[in-house]
Amino acid sequence: MTVIFLYTVLFDAYSISAFCNAGFDLIGIRTPFSSLTSYSVQPIVNLVIMVLIVVGGIGFLTWEDIKNHKWHLKKYRMQSKVIFMVTGLLIFLPALYFFYFEFSNVPLMERVWVSLFQSVTPRTAGFNTADLTLLSEVGQMLIIILMLIGGSPGSTAGGMKTTTLAVLVSSALSVFRKKEHTHFFGRRIPDDTIKNAATVFLMYIVLFLVGGMVISSTEDIPLMTALFETASAIGTVGLSLGITPDLGLVSHIILICLMFLGRVGGLTLIFATLSEKKLNGSKYPQEKITVG
Rank of each mutant, 00 (worst) to 15 (best):
E102P: 00
T193K: 09
E180I: 03
S155D: 07
L148C: 08
H183R: 13
F208Y: 14
L173R: 15
S170D: 09
D191S: 15
I143T: 08
A125E: 15
L142P: 00
G212L: 03
T163G: 08
H181Y: 10
F184G: 09
L146K: 10
L142F: 08
I143L: 12
Q140K: 12
I215R: 11
M141A: 11
T121F: 03
G150L: 11
F176P: 00
T199H: 07
T199S: 14
Q118Y: 07
G151V: 02
V214N: 10
H183S: 12
V214T: 08
T162S: 14
T133M: 01
L209H: 05
S217R: 09
S115C: 09
E110C: 00
G154Q: 09
T218S: 15
T163S: 06
M213P: 07
S155N: 04
S171P: 00
A172F: 13
N128E: 09
F208A: 13
N196G: 12
M109F: 09
F185Y: 11
I144R: 04
E102C: 05
D191F: 04
F176I: 06
G158H: 15
E102I: 00
L173Y: 12
P107Y: 04
G150A: 06
V214P: 01
G150F: 05
V112G: 02
P153H: 13
A172T: 03
K161Y: 05
P153C: 11
R187L: 07
A166I: 01
A130D: 02
N105D: 15
E137K: 08
R188A: 04
G212Y: 09
